[in-house]
Simulated scan of single mutants.
Amino acid sequence: MRAVLLGEYGGPEKLALAEVEKPVPGAGEVLVRIHAAALNPVDAKIRNGLPIGPALPAILGADLAGVVEAIGADVTGFAIGDEVYGCAGGVKGLGGTLAEYIAADARLLAKKPKTLSFREAAALPLVAITAANAMTRVAIAKGEKVLVHGGIGGVGHIAVQMAKAAGAYVVATVSTEEAGKIARDLGADATVIRSTAVADYVAEHTAGKGFDVVIDTVGGENLLRSFEATTVGGRVATTNARTTIDLGQMHGKALSLHVVFMLLPMLTGNGRAAHGDILREIAEQVDAGKLRPLLDPHAFNLASAGDAHSLLDSGKARGKIVVDIQ
């Protein structure tokens, strides 16, 4: 089969199209003919050497949508011909999705939303599972005020929609006025340019009290802005806690901090079935018109996967970057 291989760590130029052996599904696995794969920031980090990736030469990519072509032993709930989606590869011990086929752990998959194309479905798994994990951890109540940092980013644009569906008043930080319009179209009640002083938008949208919940998809030093924006006793969820910062604001407000690392079940093998459960719920929400993915308009295929990674590195994508495989 054709696949994009990473021979050594580095930039997008290290990715090359190659012919590799087609995988065979083992016990608990299904063989999926991949129609579309989506990129995520973690793919670039692994490409640059983050030590959670598969051994080199490696096939990168976690997200996929495709069709089941074969079923291994001990698999239930899937049949040949099923259209599926999931976050099922690209880390240690798992094949990647920038390829024509993947032998995927069936627990990491679900039948794709009926109302979405393969391209659209491929854009959802990693970010939707991450956002769902964050929603579970912070337990938003109807009427609460929620701030989402990175309102049209991968996780952010899903978190905006989920928080709104939970009955919250949602404010999203964005980089430009154009991005703000997109976030509002997705359901945000209001948007603020990310360079705005925290005290200013806390005063405008919470009368100075602070947000009940902050979803931080930026992390690092931005966590300090998240703590500043949160009310006393509030909850902060972050997808990036790889930093060293002063937790004084957290202590002073008695905040709770929830770190979300959705790749753990894939890396450890524990809790994988929960991902499939979440994806089934996401499919129901999508087909009910309550959730939709935001896709970058650029078109890529396996031969131009390096260009897709260059766009990922640039930070200029407007929505999820999807690579067409078939």
Rank of each mutant, 00 (worst) to 15 (best):
Y9C: 04
G11K: 12
P12S: 14
L15E: 07
E19Q: 13
E19P: 04
V20E: 02
E29Q: 15
V32L: 02
I34Q: 00
A37T: 15
N40K: 03
D43M: 08
N48F: 05
L56R: 07
P57H: 07
A62D: 03
D63F: 08
D63C: 09
V68M: 00
A70T: 07
T76H: 06
G77L: 08
G81D: 09
A88G: 08
G93N: 11
G93Y: 01
G95M: 10
A99F: 01
E100Q: 15
Y101D: 05
Y101W: 13
T115V: 08
T115H: 06
F118C: 06
M135G: 07
M135R: 06
T136F: 07
V138S: 03
A139D: 15
A141D: 12
A141W: 05
K142P: 06
G150I: 04
G150V: 07
I152R: 02
G154I: 03
G156V: 07
V160Q: 02
M162N: 05
K164V: 03
A165R: 14
G167E: 13
G167Y: 12
A168T: 10
K181W: 05
I182C: 02
A183P: 13
L186N: 10
G187I: 01
A188Y: 02
T196A: 10
A203V: 06
A207H: 14
G210F: 00
V214P: 06
T217I: 09
E221W: 00
A229Y: 00
T230L: 03
V232M: 12
A237V: 11
D246M: 05
L247W: 15
G248F: 10
H258W: 09
V259T: 14
V259A: 06
F261H: 12
L263V: 09
L263N: 12
L267A: 05
N270G: 03
R272H: 05
E281V: 11
A283G: 14
L291E: 02
P293D: 03
H298N: 14
H298V: 07
L302A: 06
A303N: 13
S304G: 07
D307I: 06
G315T: 09
A317K: 09
V323P: 04
